[in-house]
């Protein structure tokens, strides 16, 4: 194996064979070491949240990763590959450049199958909304869909005041039945206030920069399209497999879906809704 081992000879066969062997071992070893080093570095600069989202996102079922432009009808089929971060998405940039958003024609909150969707705010795909006030503080809350789903959580774990949150990182956690879910943060910033949601909001966030990039958040008409889709998916999952899909044709959705449908795999559905694999 080595030149100093008894019986070794510098024959072409030995040189080629052992050369390849040691190269393979070196490649395997180096690759593992590089991974370990990168892991160490990522942990040092605290990239865990971003990596966690990246990892979760790619494990989500394709149905949960539809591009917002598919929902709005601009594409026939498009699955997001960018972790729902439209701020760094070239396609999104091109698409919004081509059209001027006309938000004046929608003033009133949209009503959809009994859900209320206020249009004065921006929505994150993880079912949070964001609304800024005059002082530049952003309020974050759960949308109507998520609120009804969760109902009254069995427990809630809020971030400490002064801590930082980042887009698609964990904002707060709640416990519902056997599931512990995390809510994705729609914004980067510092938590200045936190509430258990009884007043309709959970966090108040002070952005770190003056200019706040909100291109990744849903707005105006596309919110309704997205809501509709989410509702359809939920119905599919709640539907009796023997009967098939039945569309709700009136009434108001219940206040606590989890309680209302006990025999359902809520762990999975909550994962789909809050984008946790």
């Amino acid at each position: 194996m080595f030149p100093w081992v008894y019986g070794f000879a510098w024959t072409p066969g030995n040189i080629i064979f052992l050369g390849i062997f040691f190269s393979v071992v070196a490649i395997i070893g180096a690759t593992v070491l590089i991974s370990l080093f990168r892991t160490y570095r990522a942990l040092q600069v605290n990239k865990t949240e971003a990596i966690r989202w990246d990892s979760e996102f790619h494990d989500l079922p394709a149905t949960s990763r539809k591009c917002r432009h598919e929902l709005s009808g601009e594409f026939k089929q498009r699955t997001c590959d960018n972790g729902f971060d439209c701020r760094t998405c070239a396609t999104h940039a091109k698409l919004i450049q081509n059209k001027t958003l006309n938000s004046d024609d929608i003033e009133l909150p949209i009503q959809l199958f009994g859900f209320t969707i206020p249009t004065d705010r921006l929505y994150h795909r993880g079912h949070t909304w964001v609304k800024s006030d005059a002082s530049g503080i952003y309020t974050v809350g759960l949308d109507d869909f998520a609120s009804r789903m969760v109902g009254t959580p069995d427990g809630i774990e809020l971030p400490a005041i002064g801590s930082r949150v980042q887009v698609n990182g964990s904002a707060w956690r709640f416990k519902k039945g056997e599931s512990v879910m995390r809510i994705l943060s729609p914004l980067d910033g510092e938590v200045v206030a936190a509430s258990d949601g009884s007043d309709g909001w959970y966090l108040k966030i002070k952005p770190l920069t003056k200019e706040v990039d909100t291109r990744h958040l849903l707005r105006d008409r596309e919110v309704a399209a997205w809501f509709l889709r989410e509702f359809e998916q939920l119905q599919e999952k709640l539907a009796d497999p023997k009967v098939g899909l039945t569309l709700a044709d009136g009434g108001t959705p219940v206040q606590d879906f989890v309680k209302a449908y006990p025999g359902v795999n809520w762990d999975g559905i909550l994962g789909d809704v809050f984008l946790e694999a």
Binding site: I28, V32, I34, T39, A42, L43
Partner: peptide, 17 residues
Amino acid sequence: SSMLVFEHELHKLIVVF
């Protein structure tokens, strides 16, 4: 966290393996 990050970094190089 360390497991998650290691998985992520290892998987990025999986093409080598």
